[in-house]
């Protein structure tokens, strides 16, 4: 999103240039009270670096965990978080919103 000056893509490109393995997670759909709109991005590396966000901090850990698998296999994933999903409690999406996050490897 143009309104964000957080240059997540720039950071991801920089990490890639440094030889890191990088995945990008993007909010693709939200329902109810989700803190970050569609298009919000989180970049993660296999080494554990994080930039940007896909929520208010509730699900970043779970997304980063899923991103490890995508970085290993190269296969993208579509993750669903929300109150209808028992994982919401696991990962602590206490705000009651629901969102879908697309995770892809930068490769």
């Amino acid at each position: 999103m143009s309104e964000s000056t957080e240059d997540v893509l720039g950071t991801a490109a920089q990490w890639l240039a440094e030889g890191e393995t990088v995945a990008i997670a993007t909010v693709v759909e939200t329902w109810g009270s989700s803190p970050r709109p569609p298009g919000s991005r989180l970049a993660v590396t296999a080494s554990g670096r994080l930039a940007g966000s896909v929520s208010g901090g509730c699900i970043e850990g779970a997304v980063a965990e899923a991103a490890r698998e995508t970085m290993r296999t190269g296969a993208p994933q579509l993750l669903d978080f929300g109150i209808s999903d028992e994982r919401a409690w696991e990962v602590g999406l206490a705000c009651g919103g629901r969102l879908t996050v697309f995770v892809e490897k930068l490769a």
Binding site: S2, V28, E29, P37, P38
Partner: peptide, 23 residues
């Protein structure tokens, strides 16, 4: 509209992510 959305094309969902120049 400067807003991302998901659209269906031939039954497949696509994510449409606009990247406008800065305000």
């Amino acid at each position: 509209e400067d807003a991302a959305r998901t659209v269906a094309l031939d039954g497949e969902p696509w994510f449409v992510h606009p990247h406008n120049p800065p305000l």
